[in-house]
Design a protein around this nucleic acid. Structure first.
Lengths: 194, 194, 194, 194
DNA sequence: GATGAATGAGGTTTCATTCAT
DNA sequence: AATGAATGAAACCTCATTCAT
């Protein structure tokens, strides 16, 4: 890779990070190219040097966060520990993304409203991959006898939904610390899997 | 109430129903006044005879569905049956709304992005009321010894989240019928409360 | 005249009076048919039974006030008194209209912006008639040796302008009472005519 | 100041000048953003690159002319000459603005109908400043014994009103040249101040 | 690489006007 | 006589996108 290409990549990442900040504040449709450029002390026009259009930028933001979360989860999944320990760790990580990256991570957002066919395809693939990590830990738990799940996919969806919902009501600095929240959620989730 | 007022109310409801259809297809920001008018074979301008502005219309759509769901749940809550039967019935109803009314019912949608302060206040109140119906059945279950919940509010939130998430993935006509889905969900949710 | 016609005339006058109130508050373009109807506890549509269109209504409002003022001034002009007394009386009356009827009386308003050709013709004629009353008293004063005016029309225009301007700055309840104001204005105007 | 800023300023001025032309023809509410854009062979949207909204543009037009007139008058006020000479010069200038810039200069227009609170504040301040220049020359005249004025503010208002009214009736190319008009007005105004 | 400037499509809103009842 | 309801034109404004420099 040439030096110039590296520079471009770095700039792209900078833009993504700023865009993510804005999206988390204003949502996908609320965020304007102007907002994002302003955050970077750039002008709208420049963004088009790095990204084909708004949809492309939004897509890459979602991808960026989701890929990162996927990587994090994968590391956790392959680390040492009992099935239960690993699941608790995964729950903590997921909730952290949901709370911190709110909109951008938002797996709740209907992707077909924002992305074109090609992007959609990749987003769905990535999401599936992400979700499968939970499937893997569940099935590992079932195999080792730690978990019990009649319809493991359904259980996984319930778990994901329960966790994503956190971003709707959890306010940092409230009655519960994030750690307490995570523990409560983990306990309940484990009940689902017993 | 005068006849003319009744007629206006009826027309308003017609508009709401059409608007709800459109919103469920395109989301709140995706739905245009033009779209909604077209669905009714009216012109944009006419909508403003019945609603002050777009925000007002959107707000009333959400309210309409949410109020209806609240009423339905309240009836269920006050009907005969064991705690478990009632909860199962409530779950079935909620999931039905989540699947059928998708966007309009969407309790995931952040209301402050679409509604003004005054509307926001009322929406949040209505949502709280809705959620409290689940709190009531849970606490009844706890009192009668049917349920066990260390942190009932957290449990309720998990349950709501799990159910709302259904609208992200459930496609009617898929592997599972809605009835099977509801049964599986109910079983899992009861596990949370044991 | 039939009774029904009389009733129509009476209603028309009622509408005019309400319209005048609104116009004085919001100006010609600011006043909407809806505003005017609301003031009368009527509906927009009904106004069209009495007036062809908005322009027609506006026109008749202006006419109404201007005709009334013209009549008032004519009476004053033909009453007993010295030239100076009569002029002072006319000034008092004009200023009163300018202050009380603000927008509707507004002779400053460019009529061609609001009225069609035919209306325009009549408005201009009426205005000319109104202005001529001041010309008459001035020329009477010149004839009797009370006034001196090299270019009486120019003097008259200055006087009208000075008086109309009052409505831009005079606030009832300020430092000056309307009576004091009128006296000061009269004194200055007489200086113009000496 | 950077070159680019200068260019923006120049363009803004161009737009202001075109807008002023249109406003003088159609008035503030009659002038549309489309009209103004067309005059410049631009599109509506472009105007919003330079001005926040219509109200902002209108406000800056009024300000532009009023500031220019204020500067002109201030120069005259501080130039050599007898009090009477200076006043005559000021009158000539004011009448010129009133006739040439009609609507935009229009001090008769009620600013609160077109401008928001903040703009209103500045407009009123600017107008006060403008009017004070006439107060200054009057008071100078009174001090030097050239003028006599019992209530100088009232006199100034009459004078302003008389002059502003010119724009209602004066048509270039009529019986009187602008020079003759100005001379007649000056003579009459001096009578007020004797 | 970046920018300033412009564009144009598309959205919301207002309002005079019409017309069947 | 009056009204309720609908219409449609025209206004304002936003914003993703383009492109010469």
């Amino acid at each position: 890779m040439k030096l110039s290409e590296k520079k471009v990549l770095k700039k792209k990442e900078q833009i993504l990070l700023s865009a993510i900040t804005i999206i988390n504040q204003k949502g996908y449709s609320g965020a304007t190219m102007e907002d994002i450029a302003a955050e970077l002390l750039m002008t709208k026009g420049s963004l088009y040097y790095y990204f084909k259009n708004k949809s492309d930028l939004m897509y890459q933001c979602h991808n960026f966060i989701l890929s990162q979360a996927t990587e994090d989860l994968r590391d956790i999944l392959h680390a040492e520990g009992t099935v239960e320990e690993i699941l608790r760790h995964m729950i903590a990580t997921h909730i952290d993304y949901a709370v911190e990256e709110k909109e951008t991570f938002n797996m709740i957002m209907e992707p077909k409203r924002f992305f074109n066919t090609e992007q959609l395809h990749l987003v769905l693939k990535l999401r599936k991959e992400y979700e499968s990590l939970f499937d893997q830990i569940i099935s590992r738990g079932v195999e080792t006898g730690s978990f019990l799940a009649k319809e493991p996919k359904i259980a996984r969806m319930m778990i994901l939904g329960a966790m994503n919902w956190v971003q709707q009501w959890y306010k940092p600095g409230g009655r519960l610390s994030k750690e307490e929240l995570v523990e409560l959620y983990s306990d309940y989730i484990l009940k689902i899997l017993k």
